[in-house]
Design a binder for these strands. Structure first.
Length: 265
DNA sequence: CTCAGTGTTCAGTG
DNA sequence: TCACTGAACACTGA
């Protein structure tokens, strides 16, 4: 369930659980798709005995800083979580790797649909795919004028540009729709055609939406009532916002887009 | 049984 | 070469 806020919530769980501990044991599922560029066996061997110094995130990617390289980096794809538990019998379904810390906690990553990836890299931040990411709205959102210049170079619909990870890292389908709804912009508009005032709204709303979602630890029940988020699912023609506006569903940039024609001109 | 889906990648097109 | 689009990927759940 990973866009930036879910990834950040997952990173924080990993941080609380792992930082300062030594990895006593590693168990890996035999999955050559999710383990990317490294065999599950080699992955386990490289992590065992290491101490976890810190955790980091950029966009939807998370990686661990260990006392010795290489370091693991993770992406959840279309679904997956981190889990912490105290008994091996509580190991969750679809687990791909499980760490046992010297504090006695088990820490696992799950990935039911297998579109996630686990890598082992000497310097994850400076190697693909993380090195290819654009700005992270939480870590290094550009100032207004730079943001405008970036948009002016793009001829695709604004919805497609927001989804492009080499533009904004961590923005996924619902965040892109939420931002355009709150900024009152038609998702089909070409990025290059936005006025400076509109581009500024997109930039500022993006920051506000991401900050709020992260502030509530990506807990959907605590997202503000007025967000489109709560009403966008289930593409039925009678869906409406909290204020009773009709929600339309259109495919843009290859993804289902929920938007409100009455508000987004 | 069919199909959409909170994502990324890559082949194909202009 | 660049920018962009659409299909493929793997699997669950409605």
């Amino acid at each position: 369930m990973p866009e930036l806020p879910e990834a950040e919530a997952a990173r924080r769980l990993a941080h609380r659980t792992l930082v300062g501990t030594r990895i006593e044991a590693v168990r890996t599922a035999d999955d050559r798709i999710v383990f990317c560029g490294v065999s599950p066996r080699a992955f386990a061997a490289r992590l065992r005995g290491r101490r976890v110094i810190s955790t980091r995130r950029r966009g939807k990617y998370i990686w661990f800083v260990l006392d010795k390289r290489p370091w693991p980096s993770m992406h959840f794809g279309m679904g997956g979580h981190f889990f912490v538990y105290q008994k091996p019998s509580d190991r969750p379904p679809y687990w791909k790797m499980e760490l046992l810390t010297d504090r006695g906690d088990y820490f696992a990553m799950t990935n039911p649909r297998r579109l996630g990836r686990i890598r082992l890299q000497d310097d994850p931040e400076h190697e693909p795919p993380i090195s290819l990411l654009g700005f992270d709205p939480l870590l290094d959102l550009p100032p207004v004028w730079t943001f405008c210049e970036l948009l002016a170079r793009r001829r695709a619909p604004i919805k497609a540009v927001l989804l492009d990870q080499s533009f904004a890292a961590g923005v996924g389908n619902w965040i892109a729709d939420e931002v355009l709804y709150q900024a009152r912009i038609d998702p089909r508009r070409l990025a290059v055609d936005l006025t400076p005032a509109e581009a500024r709204r997109v930039r500022n709303v993006l920051r506000q939406v991401v900050r709020k979602a992260v502030a509530v630890d990506a807990d959907k029940d605590r997202f503000p009532r007025e967000w489109l988020f709560h009403h966008r699912w289930g593409r039925n023609s009678r869906a409406v916002t909290a204020r009773g506006e009709r929600i339309a569903h259109t495919v843009i940039g290859g993804r289902t887009t929920a938007w409100v024609p009455a508000v987004q001109k």
